[in-house]
Simulated assay, not measured.
Amino acid sequence: MSRYSDLKTRLSSVEILRLIKEEHSYEELSPLLGLSAPILSRYVKGHILPSLERSKRILEASMEQVSDLIRKKIRFEDERVFDHSAVIYNPNLLEKIGKLAFYEFGSIKVDKVLTVETDGIPLAAQVGREFNVSFVVAKNRKEMGIRDFIEVKRVFISGAYSYLFIPKGSIEQGEHVLIVDDAVRTGFTLETLLELCRRCGAKPAGIYTIICFEDTLRRLEQKLNCPVKVLVRI
């Protein structure tokens, strides 16, 4: 990693500590993170920065607490239907989720971020900001003013289908694309986004999502030839 990436990791670990500190006392966090309460306090208050190796350990150990925090904000209607608007439209929380995305994929090359409209856009914007790259939004219709598109057919479990479109040239051949989505229910949209990458001659760098069903995740991990990172598994 570059010095810049190393510094981002160290700063991100402090930001994540501040986030989970809102839900836990230093005494509660101490055994979870393997650090004393006074040391955690000094990090959270910005008196000192943790070392790079300690920052990585903090980020790894904090994943479960961040996942629990997100889970508390999800409102379930039934097993497969939920409202996560309190997550994706929370700028402070989304900023931290973007930092975790950079931690997960910051060691590999990412040239573009790709998502699908509409709820994936806030996450894609934040992740793109962390990687300092632009993001592309696949849409269900062709936009006026754009002449050429790449399109892929998206087929649903019911047999119904639709198309996803991105402007031709928005993803270039050979680029490494990180695919992000706020929530993955069936995985068919993700597979369509992967096909869009292939049609452009790009290389999927990985998949990052906030929420994913366990059965869908198992199927994707078996089928897809790229890393899949999920914050909350349902």
Rank of each mutant, 00 (worst) to 15 (best):
V152W: 00
K223G: 09
Y208A: 01
G206T: 08
D182Q: 02
D111L: 02
I171L: 10
S13H: 02
T216M: 06
I157C: 11
D111M: 00
K96I: 09
I210K: 00
Y4E: 13
E79N: 13
E117K: 10
S62Q: 06
V66P: 01
F165Q: 03
D119F: 12
I97C: 02
H47K: 14
D6W: 04
E214H: 08
S107W: 12
R71G: 05
K8N: 09
I16S: 04
G128S: 01
E214M: 03
H24A: 08
N132L: 12
I74Y: 01
I146F: 07
K203C: 03
E151N: 11
S85A: 13
K109S: 11
G169N: 03
E15P: 02
V110D: 02
D68F: 11
V155F: 03
G174Y: 01
I70Q: 00
Q126E: 15
P122V: 12
I121Y: 03
R75D: 12
D148N: 15
L123C: 10
H176M: 08
Q173P: 07
S51R: 11
R141D: 07
A183L: 08
F76M: 12
I20S: 05
L164S: 03
V14H: 04
I171Q: 01
M63L: 15
E15W: 04
S134Y: 11
Y161C: 13
L94S: 09
R154V: 14
E79Y: 12
T9A: 06
V232C: 00
T209A: 11
F131I: 04
G206D: 02
T209V: 12
N132H: 13
T189Y: 05
Y4K: 14
L69V: 11
F213M: 10
A138Q: 05
G46N: 04
L178T: 10
K203I: 13
R71W: 06
Q65S: 15
P167D: 06
S5L: 13
L35Q: 07
P38F: 08
Y26I: 10
E117Q: 12
S13L: 05
G120M: 06
A138D: 06
P227R: 03
Y89S: 14
R233W: 00
Y4C: 10
S36V: 06
G206R: 05
